[in-house]
Amino acid sequence: MKIVVFGGTGLIGSQVVRLLGEAGHEAVAQSPSTGVNTVTGAGLADALAGADVVVDVTNSPSFAPDDVMEFFQKSTGNLLAAERAAGVRHHVALSVVGAERSPQSTYLPAKVAQEKLIAASGVPYTVVKATQFFEFLGAIADSATDGDTVHIAPVAFQPIASADVARAVADAAVAAPVNGTVETAGPDRMRFDEAIRDALAAKGDPRKVVADPAATYFGQVQTDETIVPIGDYRPGAIHLADWRAAQA
């Protein structure tokens, strides 16, 4: 199959392209660096020529709420329109577990809007929803830092390795469309504040992590069900402790 991966040069996309290529598929990475712009539509028609499947793992370059919403609505709308014209048979997109449970988030409502566009498009689809990546724990700590203190809610947290996310996306791309969502999360459930505390300690970071029930994540107050799977999900294979040891 010819599978075109938009956002194919990024953290997830580059791994998806590699996995699909190793499985014998024609996997093509597209991004603004390859001359294709999903927001303006430039280069889309040529990029989709002969494509059987499209994988969308693009992300907004700005996390300002209005910018994020504009990005996902324009980018996704342009992609889906071009796919309909090209006769693409399966659209696979990456989203976030619990996005629909975070209406006050500065980022996740845009992912919900993206999912709705996909579901209404008429293009057969699969949305893979993942939890937070191991690779982003440091950035999460930075976003919650006030002076030398990091405020994190003591709620359920189930991060995942980007390699496991890429595998789930690649598997979805070669399977039949589910016309719905599939969720994936790491193999271990822990407490959000404890995970961030351990991540900083592993790097010798002296910041103090405070368990703060009022702390928000991307603007959303958290509960034990906000950012973890509630129903069935695909567990990742890589444990956080093993991933951390490999990084060291």
Score class of each variant (00 low, 15 high):
His151Asn: 05
Val127Tyr: 00
Pro109Leu: 04
His91Met: 00
Thr131Arg: 06
Asp198Lys: 15
Thr149Arg: 15
Lys111Val: 00
Val128Ala: 12
Phe192Leu: 13
Ala99Glu: 01
Tyr125Arg: 11
Pro124Cys: 07
Asp198Pro: 04
Arg197Ala: 14
Arg89Met: 06
Ile196Tyr: 04
Asn179Lys: 09
Ala110Leu: 01
Ile118Ala: 05
Ala199Cys: 01
Ala81Trp: 02
Val150Asp: 11
Val123Trp: 03
Thr131Gln: 05
Asp198Leu: 15
Val155Ile: 10
Val165Pro: 03
His90Cys: 08
Arg89Trp: 06
Leu117Phe: 05
Phe133Asn: 13
Glu183Thr: 02
Val150Leu: 13
Ile118Pro: 00
Ala110Trp: 05
Met190Tyr: 05
Ala185Leu: 03
His151Gly: 02
Val96Thr: 03
Val182Pro: 00
Ser102Cys: 15
Asp188Met: 08
Gln114Pro: 09
Lys116His: 10
Ile196Ala: 03
Gly186Lys: 06
Ala156Lys: 13
Ala110Ser: 13
Ala141Thr: 08
Thr106Gln: 06
Gln114Thr: 10
Pro103Asp: 08
Leu117Tyr: 07
Asp142Ser: 07
Thr181Glu: 15
Ser102Gly: 06
Gln104Gly: 02
Glu115Thr: 05
Gly87Phe: 10
Ser143Phe: 05
Ser143Asn: 10
Thr181Cys: 15
Thr131Glu: 04
Leu117Ala: 09
Leu94Ile: 09
Gln158Met: 14
Ala82Leu: 11
Tyr125Ile: 05
Arg89Ala: 14
Ala86Met: 08
Ala163Ser: 14
Ala82His: 08
Pro187Lys: 13
Val92Ser: 01
Ala120Trp: 05
Ala139Ser: 10
Leu137Cys: 02
Val165Arg: 04
Phe133Glu: 12
Thr181Asn: 15
Ala85Trp: 03
Ala185Cys: 06
Lys129Thr: 04
Ser95Pro: 03
Pro159Arg: 09
Glu83Leu: 09
Pro103Trp: 07
Asp171Val: 01
Pro187Glu: 03
Leu117Cys: 08
Leu79Asp: 10
Val127Gln: 00
Ala199Asp: 10
Glu183Asn: 03
Phe134Met: 11
Ala168Lys: 04
Lys111Thr: 05
Asn179His: 09
Ala113Asn: 12
Thr145Cys: 07
Val88Cys: 12
Thr145Asn: 07
Val112His: 08
Thr181Leu: 11
Leu137Ser: 02
Ala199Glu: 07
Gln158His: 07
Arg189Asn: 03
His151Trp: 03
Gly98Ala: 14
Thr106Met: 03
Ile152Asp: 06
Pro124Ile: 04
Glu115Cys: 02
Lys116Phe: 00
Asp171Glu: 13
Ala119Pro: 09
Gly98Thr: 15
Arg89Lys: 15
Asp142Ile: 01
Ala110Cys: 07
Val112Cys: 13
Ala176Gln: 14
Pro177Cys: 08
Pro177Val: 04
Arg84Val: 13
Thr126Phe: 06
Ala170Thr: 04
Pro109Trp: 01
Gly122Val: 13
Thr184Gly: 00
Ile160Tyr: 04
Pro154Thr: 13
